[in-house]
Design a protein around this nucleic acid. Sequence first.
DNA 1: GTCTATAACGGGATAGAC
DNA 2: GTCTATCCCGTTATAGAC
Lengths: 203, 203
Amino acid sequence: MDSKQANNSRLKLMETARELFIAKGVDRVGVREIATNAGVNLSLMNYYFQSKENLLEQIFEDSIKNYGQTLRQILNSHKSIDQKVKEYVYAYIDMLSKDPLIVPFVLSIIHRNAEQAPRLKSVQTLYSTDAFAKQLKQEAEKGNIKPVDPEQFYISMISLILFPFAIKPLVQYRLGLNDEEIALSLQSRKDHIYNMLMASIKA
Amino acid sequence: MDSKQANNSRLKLMETARELFIAKGVDRVGVREIATNAGVNLSLMNYYFQSKENLLEQIFEDSIKNYGQTLRQILNSHKSIDQKVKEYVYAYIDMLSKDPLIVPFVLSIIHRNAEQAPRLKSVQTLYSTDAFAKQLKQEAEKGNIKPVDPEQFYISMISLILFPFAIKPLVQYRLGLNDEEIALSLQSRKDHIYNMLMASIKA
DNA sequence: GTCTATAACGGGATAGAC
DNA sequence: GTCTATCCCGTTATAGAC
C-alpha cells in the first residue's frame, strides 16, 4: 500500500534524524546525511518535511503534545494551589529530563522566528496559563495566599523550571559535573523550586 | 590615517549589522546584505570578523563586558545578601532591557556549541557565582537566613532574571502587549523577583 | 595593514520534468 | 514519489591593489 510506504519512509526519517540529532547535535547533522542513513531520497525528505527545522519540530511534536496535555490538566484541575505547583514542577522536570533537547529547540524557534513562533503548538505548550491565573486571584482574595500578579508568578514558575535546561552545558562545565550528577542536580531542583514558589505566596 | 579607516569600516559594519539584526532578526540578515548596506566589501568583512556568529559576538562584547563587571562587583562586594540581590536583579534587568538580543544570542551559542561555549567570556558573564555562594552559607550558619543550596539559589536567581527575555516574543503575543507594555512588564519583574528570592530565604 | 574582486565549496531549500 | 538542476547563503581561498 502507498500509505504504508509513506508512513515507513516518514517514520524512518524521523527515527534516523532523532538518533543523529541526539548523537551528534542538531547542527552537526546534514540533511543529506539523514536521508542517506534512512535510505530515503533527499527530495522525498523535503517532500514530507519542508525544512530541517520542521523535521525537528515533527520529531518532538508527539512527546511535547502528550506532556503538554498532562501539564495543562494539572493546572486546570480542581486541586489546591500548593498541590498544583508541586505536581506541575515535578511533571515538567520529568518531561524535560527525558527530552533535554526540547528547551533549546523551542527557544531557538522563538529566537529565529519571533513572529510566527507563538502560533506553534510545541511553543504554546511551554506557555499556557489558563485557569491557573484565576485561581491565584481567588485564593488571594480569600486570604489563603499573598496577593500576587498571576502572570508574573506563572512566568517565574516556568523560568525556574525551564531555564536550567537551557544552560545545562554551561552549569555542567562550571561545576565540573558528569552526566549523572547534572541529572541529579536538576532532579533536586524540584523541591527547591516548589519551596521557593510557595514561600513567596504563603499568607 | 590607516587606523582610522580601519576603525571606520569595522565600526560601520558593526553598527549596520546591529541595526539589521535588531530590525529583521539575526537569521533573516545575510552577510552579503550587511556588507552591502555598510558600503564595505564582503571580503573585508570576513577579514575583520571571520564568521557571522563572531560578528554577532563582537557586537555585544563591549556591553556584555561592561555590565558583566558591574554585576560581578555587586556579588563580590561587602553588602548584605538582601542588598546584593536587589542591586543584582535591578542591574541585570536594566542591562538586558537595553540589549534584548543578548540572552537569545548567548543561549544559541550554548545550544550550537555546547563544548566550547562555557569558555567564551560573553557566556561566562551570564554565570558567575564566586563569593556569593560563600556568603549565603555563612549567613545561613549565623541564622540570618534559611539554609539554602547556594548553587541552586544562584541558578534560580538568574533563571528568574534571564528566562523572560528568552521568551519575550511569546509572552508579548500571548498577553497582547505592545513594545512599551512588555518593557514595563519586564521592569515590574524587578521587585517580583527580589521579593520571591528573599521570601524563600527569610529566616 | 586595509581593501577589492572573484571563484569555489558545502549545505539547505526549491521547482519542474518524469 | 523520484531525480536533476538550480539557487541562496555562509564560508574559504587566492591574487592583487593601495
